[in-house]
């Protein structure tokens, strides 16, 4: 098993955190994991992204230009990364702030209004990233949902139970958001 996921958005949308939650959950399951951020000046204001590789064997490359899944939090990220998903791979797109659809016809694209869902479920759109993570989980199912939940609880431990609960709720809402058939172009 080898799963390569890119998580991309504006700086401040929590894409790096989303990636860390994935990698932590993988570590929790005894899998190999790597997390690599983009770094440097583009961290500020521009797009932020990271790539997470999860595998049941030693990980070679921590980068890939044929990813299994890409989580898109904003429009520049869609433009930058939609070519990096492999045919038949997964695109998960935050419809709240991405007004366009992917041009790719050979991938499975899923759209959800992550910011709106986050706001509805947890009084704030700050957990849109965790909503997207829930959506990713429901589609890819590479990791156990329990491991992701444990990673959430562990990562937000210092911020108190309220924050943990809000993020667990966001994760659940994201998991349920795509229970219908994929919307948008598919192969």
């Amino acid at each position: 098993m080898l799963e390569q996921t890119v998580l991309a958005g504006f700086g401040g949308q929590g894409v790096l955190m989303m990636g860390k939650l994935l990698a932590s959950a993988a570590m929790d399951e005894g899998l190999y994991a790597s997390w690599l951020p983009s770094y440097g000046p583009e961290m500020r204001g521009g797009t932020a992204n990271c790539i997470v590789v999860v595998s049941d064997e030693e990980i070679g490359s921590p980068v890939s230009d044929a990813c299994d899944a890409i989580v898109v939090m904003n429009q520049p990220s869609l433009e930058k990364f939609e070519s990096k998903v492999r045919p038949d791979g997964t695109l998960i797109i935050n419809k709240s702030i991405v007004p366009v659809e992917t041009t790719r016809k050979d991938v499975n694209a899923h759209y959800l209004e992550a910011d709106d869902i986050a706001e509805k479920n947890c009084d704030a759109n700050r957990s849109a990233n965790v909503v997207m993570l829930g959506a990713l989980q429901s589609v890819r199912q590479i990791l156990k949902s329990d491991s992701v939940r444990r990673a959430i609880a562990c990562s937000f431990k210092s911020k108190g139970q309220q924050v943990i609960d809000a993020n667990l709720a966001a994760f659940a809402a994201g998991t349920n958001a795509l229970r219908t058939e994929p919307i948008g172009p598919t192969r």
Binding site: K20, A23, M27, A33, W35, L36, P37, Y39, P62, V63
Partner: peptide, 10 residues
């Protein structure tokens, strides 16, 4: 190198 410095792994 920059990748090894920036990346996270268990």
């Amino acid at each position: 190198d920059g990748v090894l410095g920036a990346m996270m792994e268990p």
